[in-house]
Structures are given as C-alpha cells and as structure tokens.
Amino acid sequence: MKRAERLSAILDLLAESNQVEVEDIVEKLAVSPATARRDLDSLASQRLLTRTRGGATIETVAYDLPVRYNKDNQTEHKRAIAQAASELIPRGAVIGLCGGTTSTAIASVLSTRRDLMEPSNKPTLTVVTNAINIAAQLAVRPNIKIMVTGGIVNPRSYELVGPYTDIILQNVALDFAFVGVNGLDPEVGPTVSDEGEAAVNALVARRAFAAYVVADSSKIGVRSFATMNGYVFSNLITDSGITQEQISAFEERGTNVIVAPPVEVD
C-alpha cells in the first residue's frame, strides 16, 4: 500500500470511532508500529488529527475532517441519486451544484456522459458551483464550462461562502440547481450544519428554474442547525431506502419526490 493510500485509510479508521490506536493501524493495514507512528505524526502535522499516547483522536481538532476523508456508507445510494439527477439535465443546460458528497457524485456522473464529451463549438454544459472540489473535478472536461462563485472556503466541505459568493450568484440564471443537505424533515425542510452554506444553498436554488434537493434516505427525518430561508422546497431526489410513509409526508406538503432506482457501484 502506497503512503498516500495509508494516510487516507488511517483517516477512514479515525472517522469510524473518532479515535485510532497504533495497534489498530498495524493490524488492519499490515504495517510496522514505526510506520504507523510516522503516518500519524504526518497527519498531525497537517492538523487532520491530534496525537495521543499510543494513537490519535479528532476530539480536540478545531474543525471537522473534510468531506473527502469522511467515511461514506451511502455510496451506492448517492450514485443512484446522481444518475437520476443526470437524466434530468439536457445537453446545453446551465446548472448549479452546491457542495457535498451527493453533489460530487452528480459531477462524477456528468463527467462521464458521452453526449457531454462530444466535440462542440460551444459548452455542452455550464456548471455554476461554490464547491472548489467539484470545480476541480470538472475542469479537465473541456466541453464543460465551469463558473466558480468566489467567497471564503469552508475547510469542512470545500464550499465557498460569504458576501462575495452572493454577489456572483445574484447575476446568474440557472436551468437546474441541485442542493445537498445534512438533514431533511417534512415540516422543517432541508437543513445544513453551517449557516453560511445554508444561505448560499438557498440562493442557488432561487436562481434556478427548477431546484432539487438531493439527499440519500439516511438524511430523512434528520434536523441540522441551519434552515434555508427564502427557498420553497418542492423537489426531492432520494434513493429507494425512503419509506412510503415518508414519501406521503413530503407529498402532503407539496413536495415532488423522485425515488432513484438502484445502480451498481464498481
């Protein structure tokens, strides 16, 4: 296993229980104790964990592990949601993608669509995003035009937030917007953990002809800190884990629910 792969694997172990011991790394990654300690020291120098006697913890780190290091047990569901979202997007559309793992999955699906890769004198797709990881992911596709909003980077999610973001978004018109969330409740609506991200998400949604919350079924019934004021929540794309009772609760409040069929994940 290469060093970069080991470091990522250690952060995966850390994300599972908020702490990891040298012995765990030795056993699960088949490395020596000296290598495990050096890897922990390297991650500590990047402030991705805090070293303890015999291991490491994230309890005293001043920020959450970035989304690319979070253990994601919903990959299959998010891939299904991403595929369903992609099928709504015609060639030539202008779309908004907020940050988050589900939106990143949408970007992955779009980056492999054959019709978007065909030669063209004009963009086959225009993507407006406040997520720098999504912009970097799509920037290698020459047919896709990328617009990054500007703003201050949230290190937890790679999303740009703040007044500079708002200024840019006030001057764009989107065909579709896809908004990721941390929680989704039929009564409260979509919520996220950061108030700055909530404000940007709401504005992106309002700038679109049609806006969709994209959330795997584990987010349903969960309430996070910040609501998306000014945004009328009317479309949801989720996975087959949603129950009929939950679908009915959303539909009774005027929300159109799209249940993505399962897809295979490599």
Rank of each mutant, 00 (worst) to 15 (best):
L174G: 03
D12R: 09
R253D: 01
Q246A: 15
S32T: 14
T75K: 12
E195T: 10
V61F: 00
V26F: 05
L125A: 07
V148K: 04
A56N: 08
A15K: 01
S217N: 04
E195Q: 11
N256M: 03
N229Q: 14
V257D: 04
K145W: 01
N201L: 00
S45H: 10
M147L: 15
S108G: 15
P142W: 02
N171V: 00
T227H: 05
L11C: 06
N18V: 01
E264H: 10
N133C: 10
D39Y: 04
L184N: 08
F178P: 07
V257N: 07
R68Y: 05
F233K: 09
I152W: 10
D12V: 05
L65W: 05
T75C: 02
R141L: 14
G92A: 03
P142F: 04
L160I: 02
E251C: 08
I146R: 04
Q74L: 09
K122R: 15
V67E: 14
S86C: 15
V204F: 15
I168L: 15
A93Y: 08
P123R: 13
A136T: 10
M117L: 15
A85D: 10
L236K: 12
P163W: 09
I168R: 05
Q19G: 05
V109I: 15
Q46T: 01
T50M: 09
A199T: 14
A9M: 03
P66T: 03
E16T: 07
A107V: 14
L65G: 12
G151V: 02
N235K: 11
L7W: 08
S157V: 14
Q246K: 10
A173C: 03
D216W: 00
Y164T: 08
R37H: 01
N73E: 08
N70H: 04
A105Q: 13
I134R: 06
T50I: 13
P163S: 09
N73C: 04
V67K: 06
G180S: 14
G54W: 00
L110C: 11
A215R: 06
R68C: 06
S108F: 13
